[in-house]
Design a protein around this nucleic acid. Sequence first.
DNA 1: TAGTGGTCTAGACCACGCT
DNA 2: GCGTGGTCTAGACCACTAT
Lengths: 243, 243
Amino acid sequence: MKGDPVINRHSGVPLYGQIAQDLEGRLGDDYEPGDRLPSVAELAERYEVNRLTVHEALGVLVRRGLVTTVKGKGSFVALPIIRWDVRAGQDASLTQAMGERGHAVENRVLGVVEDDDPELREQLGATRALLRFESVRYVDDEPWSMTSTWFDPDRFPRLDELWVDRSSLHLVLKQEYGVRMRRSTRTFAALAADATEGQILRVPVASPILQARGLNVDEQGRPVAAVEHRFRGDRIQFSVELG
Amino acid sequence: MKGDPVINRHSGVPLYGQIAQDLEGRLGDDYEPGDRLPSVAELAERYEVNRLTVHEALGVLVRRGLVTTVKGKGSFVALPIIRWDVRAGQDASLTQAMGERGHAVENRVLGVVEDDDPELREQLGATRALLRFESVRYVDDEPWSMTSTWFDPDRFPRLDELWVDRSSLHLVLKQEYGVRMRRSTRTFAALAADATEGQILRVPVASPILQARGLNVDEQGRPVAAVEHRFRGDRIQFSVELG
DNA sequence: TAGTGGTCTAGACCACGCT
DNA sequence: GCGTGGTCTAGACCACTAT
């Protein structure tokens, strides 16, 4: 149990920042993962500040993924981050790897649109406009990533009909087209979630997103699909063996 | 020039969210990179809301890296993101690569501490506590990344004296110890900047950080150092060729 | 119905940059 | 000195959850 909160009103440091730091120091100590924090009103009284100031402090912790808030219920210490290694390698299927570990993995295709990106088109050697599939991956009913996948419609005809409502793209490609897909290049970047991504992935706007873009190829090294994954930063990390 | 702002006060969507979206839609259109946005007071009048509500809307855009604010001056449309490919490969030195392109790269060693992490110690095959170097990399006087580097003090005696005040670790290792260091494994994750990282990297708290952890090895594949880079998400992306 | 977090207002003061 | 963004208060209303 830590001592009384000490807030310095004349240090030049914003009160909400001091409160956020004080609360962060108590996480895992006074407050353990899953615990409910004192209510905003309670904290406001304890720190002798306005409710809004407490709300701003909690906002800092929420955006950093340390605290989650539920309207009508309260604020809770976030559960320990479950990081999952998505290892590069011959097996490009997360669905399969997770399934073997007893997790329910589901891919939902949100939609398919024509997307005439000249650069991607050249990468895939397509002569017509590519098809872009938008999908979301859920692990145990929790959204983990959004994915855009670009295909050459001439090489994979009717893929839109075949993939929708089936969990694994890799299975569809293998069973329907005889193609074993593996990862080739990847580019990693850290982004901030926009409003749409926040809504679909159920994270606050501006939460960290691990973006992995690249090319998938078949066993002969021929390009199969261009992909862009946007993983929830609090759920995924990506391990790579470099050459 | 887009039309008048349209804000729906009874849609259930927060006003600051609507304002953020409206402003975002005008970026690159009404307001170009580097332009000053209307003042908070001006926007409050235009949207017929309180100043605080405008401030919250700008906060969303700031945290997403689309807008920067300067106290006393105004709010500005962020400059286009300069993404830099840090490619994996035989040459592990960013300093050298950037220098060849006419950028001034500087590494400042903030400090050296003993750090007895058993796991890292085993990875490096050390028999004593490791030394952890904390450094910051600046490109054209702008902070780009923070780095922690763990060394076996027995293998690299006096490294602390030799590295401090010299720009490139790779040069020091090559010239003083005859070691050519290259990247081996890497793990990528997207984090949110804490208060310290935000201050040093000059980004808002909770900004996206691309974390790259891994092992560097010499030409014989023997471990040389464990590293953890924390790159500003708005400045760096990382490209990898997978096996 | 009571308690919770989320939003919004009106008004105030501050620190900062510029002229 | 004035305009700027940043912070904070007091008070209000709302939507949601649980009882």
